[in-house]
Nucleic acid binder design. Structure first.
Lengths: 149, 149
DNA sequence: TGCAAATATATGTACATACATTTAATGTTG
DNA sequence: CAACATTAAATGTATGTACATATATTTGCA
């Protein structure tokens, strides 16, 4: 559906404004699709993203700093998201022996198993991006990189 | 900067995953640019968006339902955002005479004046989208529409 | 060595999101 | 017209975001 119809606004100031609104709307749309999938597993999107970073490190631990560095949204509060994962026993937190200011965070076996289940779900899932050809996906990335130049 | 460098991840599963991550990252980047501009005016991005919808309706009132319909994120809580605007005297709330379940929300003169100031700021502001040509902006919108098909 | 600066994380507060529930007014229908 | 369903908005609760501040540890250097 064209963005005009999605938000019931027929005219935009210019193509830039239209593209901007479309970006915000489409990203929100994609994220809602995704969190819908995660809900039955009791995971939110930020929690999932952190778990994936921890799996990437496994069996090495990560620190909060490393999580922030890798997170898409740098300013969010990794510490409190780890809190939630710890309560669910999906990660462990131990004081880092070599630097007692830092905290070693590790994904547990339960966390790895949950991600395996989600991998299977995501495999079957048609996220909207697959409506694009490979060339179009590349083109999209290039346009986005240009925006942030 | 290429997305690989922004998030310190050199490889992606495929171009689709890369474009997806780039979408989330770039939209977050844009929104942070914008809220930075609003902060000195004491407005958040959702508050600004609602004020703009109300200006679009002015001098007719809007209901909460109409706001939700027009908002980019349909599931957010318009009622409480209006609360914040009301405290700042940027909008008024009166019971709708023809349907006492509904509430007529109107932008005040102070609200209109604040938007005028912000218009001026936004005019001078180089939001990243202007790095694109007009053709590229159109192309971007078309790609995004295709994602949501 | 001792003390200030830097670092790693946690905490506090205001705002927003997501979703379920509540309250009040209006429609509907047997 | 009375009972029930629907609708519009507000409220409750858990989570996340943004930003400032606090606490503990380590580092650096006078």
């Amino acid at each position: 559906m064209k963005i005009e119809d999605e938000i019931k606004q027929s005219t935009f100031k210019d193509e830039y404004q239209k593209a901007h609104i479309n970006l915000v709307f489409t990203t929100g749309w994609l994220q809602q699709q995704q969190s819908g999938q995660f809900k039955e597993f009791g995971l939110t999107l930020p929690q999932f993203n952190i778990l994936r970073i921890l799996r990437g490190q496994h069996p090495k631990p990560a620190t909060v700093n490393l999580l922030i560095e890798r997170m898409l949204d740098k300013t969010s509060n990794a510490s409190r998201i780890v809190d939630k994962l710890e309560v669910k026993h999906l990660v462990t937190r131990t004081v880092c022996p070599s630097n007692r200011r830092a905290v070693d965070i590790r994904i547990t076996e339960a966390g790895l198993e949950l991600l395996r289940q989600l991998d299977a779900v995501m495999q079957n899932q048609q996220l909207g991006l697959q409506n694009l050809t490979l060339e179009e996906a590349t083109q999209l990335s290039n346009l986005l990189d240009k925006i942030r130049d």
